[in-house]
Design a binder for these strands. Structure first.
Length: 503
RNA sequence: GGGCCUGUAGCUCAAUAGGCAGAGCAGCGGACUUUUAAUCCGAAGGUCGUGGGUUCGAUUCCCACCGGGCCCA
């Protein structure tokens, strides 16, 4: 023996034999493997949901002659001696199995009795309703399809621990109806968004995630390294500039629903990777995009909840009536009681901001100060859907100058219940102006503003070939799903949120 | 980054002025042919997040670390 610390050999069963609860299940599993093994397929004829829909209105104590083969995870076993009530859960819901020793025979009944909660089971029989009226399948045959070697959480309380619910989402999905419902609703919402764009003649495209330079937004990127090319690369922080290159190329209506990566903090509305929807439409301006977003959000609400009137954070929210449209400068003027005039001396603007508790940076101009006042005084207070219009040019380096006001841009953000859901503009399509804006950003960056956009020369090159007038849009998909599913933390709508390694 | 809270059986939760750690569910043995959080009887099940410290004795007090939550920046 040496003094070296003993190396822990990983046990071949992953530690299952070390705990009585799993050792029993492991032993049964090994017996099955040594014997007839597990089936490779099962012919299901009915989902749980089908049976409840078709037979839910039958009188208690009805016996049909209709055969059904169901399959799912065994979620409950109520043993009554020579009778077992078992509950199978499939993707549509739950169905009770009526397991009668006389129907099934002694051996098969004993085998069913030996099943454990969590096992995957396929069973067939006739549809009946019990004395209490529960739609059930009285089985005369069943197969153990796969065994759960680990026990399920508490049947009544489910899995509560927030961390475990995220780490072992599969368990969360098994036992918590709300987790399943949210995942299903997210799928429906994303599907509806696609349908909406396709109905408008958009095509779905995929632009690169791995880039030499992360541009198109104000955010810190994740850095990685390409070994063969011997160069550092970045994960995208937006899809914007690539999608507009495609419009330059003549793909006049494009959208992308894609994963975006931002190397920033984690909180109730931020995950390092999240899903962004961006779209660009040639010949449209931001007014057209406002109309479109309103229709799409209503469509998604109906798909998710059946109504445009939803409940969010215990308050009702009417997405059905026209969204309010109001300029950012007017909202700030109203909140401060002072007119937002770009000709006003900058010192007065700074003093106003400081009066409202804002820590003013020396690099800020009128536009940035107005934006900060908006964030500080107005944004949280907005409940009803509101398009906040015409952001200052200083904070909108990719948006086109407003046709009526050179200090502003044709841009809007959609605010609902204090949060931002969409950001859109009439796209800046003049390469000369775009270069100027990038240079202003570069100057701000040089003065210490680490939230300034980097310059993207190749994008300017693309603009030099001509971008038509274009209306663009970005929607945070995770947040939209949160809104429509009444979830208040982004981890509840992301199946596998970013976590530290387990302790 | 700061403040507060938190980690106990597979799960959901208790308890301890510092002295053998407790329940429900799940699991195991038994009874039961209409249950649906079934019921009843019985026997089990713990590295109290990890590592230090104080102490005769630490799950409990102190320190550090790890994971998680909420609020603030």
């Amino acid at each position: 023996m040496s003094d070296e610390p003993e190396i822990q050999e990983p046990s071949p069963d992953g530690g299952l034999a070390d705990h009585p609860l799993t050792a029993q299940r492991l032993a049964k599993h090994e017996t099955t493997l040594a014997g007839e093994g597990y089936p490779y397929r099962f012919d299901r004829t009915k989902y749980a949901g089908d049976l409840h829909e078709a037979y839910g209105s039958l009188e208690p104590g009805t016996e049909t002659e209709d055969r059904a083969a169901v399959a799912g995870r065994l979620m409950a076993m109520r043993r009554m001696g020579k009778l077992i009530f078992a509950v199978l859960q499939d993707t549509t819901g739950r169905i009770q199995l009526f397991v009668d020793k006389r129907t099934l025979g002694d051996d098969a009944f004993a085998a069913f009795d030996d099943l454990g909660i969590g096992d995957w089971v396929g069973a067939s029989g006739v549809v009946i309703t019990t004395k209490k009226g529960e739609v059930s399948v009285r089985i005369n045959d069943f197969e153990l399809l796969s065994r759960a070697l680990r026990p399920l959480p508490d049947k009544w309380h489910g899995l509560q621990d927030t961390e475990m619910r995220s780490r072992r989402r599969y368990v969360d999905l098994m036992v918590n109806d709300d987790a399943r419902r949210t995942a299903m609703m997210r799928a429906r919402i994303v599907s509806e968004l696609r349908r909406q764009f396709e109905a408008r003649g958009y095509i779905e495209v995929e632009t690169p995630v791995l880039l030499n330079q992360a541009t198109g937004a104000l955010a810190k990127p994740f850095q990685t390294h390409h070994n063969a090319l011997e160069q550092d690369m970045y994960l995208r922080i937006a899809t914007e500039l690539y999608l507009k290159r495609l419009v330059v190329g003549g793909l006049e209506r494009v959208f992308e629903i894609g994963r975006i990566f931002r190397n920033e903090g984690v909180d109730s509305t931020h995950n390092p990777e999240f899903t962004m929807l961006e779209s660009y439409e040639a010949f449209a301006d931001y007014n057209d995009i406002m109309d479109m977003v309103e229709e799409m959000i209503r469509a998604c609400a109906i798909v998710a909840t059946g109504s445009t009137e939803i409940t969010y954070q215990d308050r009702t929210l009417d997405l059905g009536k026209p969204f309010r449209r109001v300029r950012m400068v007017d909202l700030v003027a109203q909140a401060t009681g002072e007119e937002m005039d770009f000709d006003r001396p900058l010192d007065e603007m700074r003093a106003l901001a400081e009066k409202h508790g804002i820590d003013v940076d020396g690099t800020w101009g009128h536009g940035k100060i107005i934006d900060q006042l908006f964030e500080e005084l107005v944004a949280d207070e907005i409940w009803e859907p509101t398009y906040v219009l015409d952001h200052p040019k200083e904070i909108s380096p990719l948006a086109r100058e407003h046709r009526d006001d050179p200090n502003l841009t044709e841009r809007y953000e959609l605010f609902i219940a204090g949060s931002e859901y969409a950001n859109a503009f009439s796209e800046l399509n003049d390469p000369l102006d775009q270069r100027l804006r990038f240079e202003q950003q570069a100057a701000a960056r040089a003065e210490g503003d680490d939230e300034a956009h980097p310059i993207d020369e190749d994008y300017i090159l693309a603009l030099e070939y001509g971008l038509p007038p274009t209306g663009g849009l970005g929607i945070g998909v995770d947040r939209l799903v949160m809104l429509l599913t009444d979830q208040h933390h982004i981890r509840e709508v992301i199946l596998f949120p970013t976590l530290r390694p387990e302790a």
